[in-house]
Simulated assay, not measured.
Amino acid sequence: MAQTAKDIYIVGLRNAHAMEVQARELMERQSERTDDYPDVKLMLTKHLTETKDQLARLERCLTACGEDSSSLKDTAQSLVANVTALFHSAADDEILKNTFANNAFENFEIAAYKSLITLAEAAGCNGDTQLLKMSLAEEQKMADWVDANVEKVTSAYLRRATL
């Protein structure tokens, strides 16, 4: 059965919504455990607010298409996020594992939003592109921050671990 560009776009929106649910859960867990790294905690808290806005934007896009998010995908990604956070919390170098994972995840989100923008245009959902570009810009800003702070976070961890 052939799919239309809009069908593919809707699947992409649902996948992105689940991705942002996963991001929200990860940041909620991480921000609970980063008191020793105030810069990280501040950025996680700020980006958590952005992530909630991104979820709302994706929901607007889905509603404009006459669709909803996928409860199954959202629940599965929420579970993945919480299990990941649980495993990272058991490690002495939790902050490093989170930093590496966040670096990868932010770039994953960037790719997803670039793809969604292309799909929205192909599906004729040009009204959605501005919303998606807002989310893309937020993800790029966070990815840049994480990347620029790997060494700083590593040094802070090293100081704490070798006291």
Rank of each mutant, 00 (worst) to 15 (best):
Q22L: 10
E32W: 11
F108P: 00
D68Q: 15
F105K: 06
V40W: 05
V150I: 05
D39Y: 08
A16H: 09
T34R: 01
D128G: 05
T34Y: 01
T129M: 06
L72M: 08
T4P: 00
F105V: 01
Q130S: 10
D39L: 10
N15A: 15
I8Q: 10
E20Q: 06
A91L: 15
A2L: 11
V83T: 05
T63H: 04
V146P: 00
D53E: 14
I95N: 01
R60M: 11
Y113R: 04
N15S: 15
S155P: 01
G66E: 06
E151Y: 12
L42E: 09
E50S: 12
A90W: 15
Y37K: 03
A104E: 12
D74R: 10
E121L: 14
E109P: 01
L48R: 05
M19Y: 08
M142A: 02
A56G: 00
R159D: 08
E121V: 15
A23D: 02
L79D: 07
M142D: 00
D144W: 05
N149H: 15
Q30H: 12
D147I: 09
A90E: 14
Y113Q: 04
Q3P: 04
K152Y: 07
G127N: 08
D74T: 07
K6Y: 07
T49H: 14
E25D: 00
F108I: 04
I10K: 03
A81I: 01
Q22C: 05
K141G: 03
N126H: 15
M134S: 13
N102Y: 05
L13I: 01
Y9S: 02
T51H: 03
L44Y: 07
V11A: 15
T118S: 13
L163Q: 13
N98M: 09
D147H: 15
K46A: 11
E121Y: 13
D93F: 11
A143C: 06
R57C: 06
A104F: 13
R160V: 03
H17P: 00
R160H: 07
T99K: 02
L96K: 11
M27S: 00
S155M: 12
I95K: 02
L132P: 01
K46M: 09
Q130N: 06
E67V: 00
L79G: 08
L116K: 03
A122C: 13
I117Y: 09
D74Q: 10
L119C: 08
R14K: 14
L26S: 01
D93A: 14
D7Y: 00
G124F: 10
P38E: 09
T51W: 02
V153Y: 03
T49N: 14
E151S: 14
E50A: 10
L86N: 11
G124E: 08
L96S: 10
V40L: 11
A85T: 06
T84H: 09
E151W: 14
I10D: 02
L62V: 04
L26N: 02
L163D: 13
A148N: 12
L163I: 12
A104I: 12
Q30G: 00
K141M: 06
D74V: 05
S69T: 10
D92E: 06
E151V: 14
A120G: 09
T162L: 13
H17Y: 11
K114P: 05
M19V: 07
D36F: 11
